[in-house]
């Protein structure tokens, strides 16, 4: 009897889990290099396809030819295109991105000053979105089909259908101008003042993301609730907290995390509008101003910086996903 319980099998050879994760991380970081190159090519091409040229933007319509030539030389625009591209790539490697035409300061300085503001805004918006959507999505899924579910879902539906600038203006009017709980604009001084100034803007920005997340997470949770492994976990007599966090939450988050990563790009887009409404001196407003002013060096540098930021966000969410889901580390 016992002999049959212990059949002999050939030994399997399999790498251990931590090694697998490390290899996966390194591979994903290496994969970032072609992505970054691609971003550089696209930005380089796009900026040169924009209508108008920087010299006339700086000098106006009645510029002298000599001045135009000088500006073009300063910007390296008199060089052949391949040379321009090499110089372009070199500028990103060295970090010397030239000077802003309009503001006369180094582009790298501008980016370092403005980008953190936008990152902070986006981060706070992401925190608000997650903090509201995760618990409410769970509640809606667990109460599926009942009144609670309906209320939560229609609430978020309204959030999803309202334009960012409208929500921004309403919040600004009510909580800023009328109630005076929050400043009506600007960024303030020091970390906590920054956070305080960004509360209304980030809630505005969070609204649509949180609606998207809530919808996805709700259906993900419903799928997981119906999964056999949840029934199996229940059949083991585990406490409901363990079932909820270890078995349901983790599996439901895996699919929603991908949506979250993809939404960060949209969020940065929304940041441009939000920063305008709330007069926040972030990268979004700098970008808008620079595009209108044909400030090529700033547009180039900022676009690449934002694209890198988005790629890094994708990488981060991918890594978190792989960490949560062992099947992805292939």
């Amino acid at each position: 009897m016992r002999a049959r319980l212990r059949p002999r099998f050939p030994k399997c050879t399999n790498v251990r889990a931590p090694r697998v994760m490390l290899e996966y991380v390194l591979r994903r970081i290496l994969q970032l290099i072609p992505t970054l190159l691609f971003i550089l090519v696209v930005v380089f091409a796009l900026v040169r396809l924009l209508p108008g040229d920087p010299a006339s933007a700086v000098l106006g319509d009645r510029a002298l030819d000599a001045d135009v030539e000088r500006i073009n030389r300063e910007l390296g625009l008199d060089q052949p295109i391949p040379v321009q591209f090499v110089l372009f790539v070199k500028s990103f490697v060295t970090g010397d991105l030239g000077n802003s035409i309009a503001l006369k300061v180094p582009v790298s300085t501008l980016i370092l000053e403005r980008l953190p503001v936008t990152m902070m805004l986006t981060f706070m918006a992401a925190v608000f979105a997650v903090a509201t959507s995760v618990p409410l999505a769970f509640l809606a899924a667990l109460r599926r089909g009942r009144a609670t579910d309906t209320v939560i879902r229609s609430g978020f539906q309204v959030g999803l259908s309202m334009p960012v600038f409208f929500v921004g203006l309403v919040l600004l009017t009510v909580f800023g101008a009328r109630l005076r709980w929050f400043p009506v604009g600007g960024y303030g001084e020091g970390f906590f003042d920054h956070v305080y100034h960004l509360i209304l803007p980030s809630i505005t920005l969070a609204l649509s993301l949180s609606a998207v997340l809530m919808r996805n997470l709700r259906s993900a949770v419903i799928n997981v609730l119906d999964a056999d492994y949840v029934a199996f976990a229940e059949s083991k007599g585990l406490r409901s907290g363990i079932i909820l966090f270890r078995h349901i939450l983790r599996n439901a988050l895996i699919s929603t995390l991908a949506i979250f990563g993809l939404s960060i790009g949209t969020l940065l887009g929304g940041a441009v509008i939000t920063e305008s409404v709330f007069a926040v001196p972030g990268a979004g407003r700098l970008m808008v101003d620079s595009i209108y002013g044909r400030d090529y060096p700033v547009v180039q540098g900022l676009t690449v910086a934002l694209a890198v930021l988005v790629s890094l966000t994708f990488l981060t969410t991918d890594l978190i996903q792989a960490w949560l889901d062992p099947r992805l580390k292939k």
Binding site: Y229, A231, N251
Partner: peptide, 28 residues
Amino acid sequence: LRKVRGGEISMIFQEPATALNPVLPIRV
């Protein structure tokens, strides 16, 4: 009932591919 489930009465399912949690090692 929780004490009975798994402790006194256990259950196994038809499809082991879906009844095991895909993201947890067997040990857990």
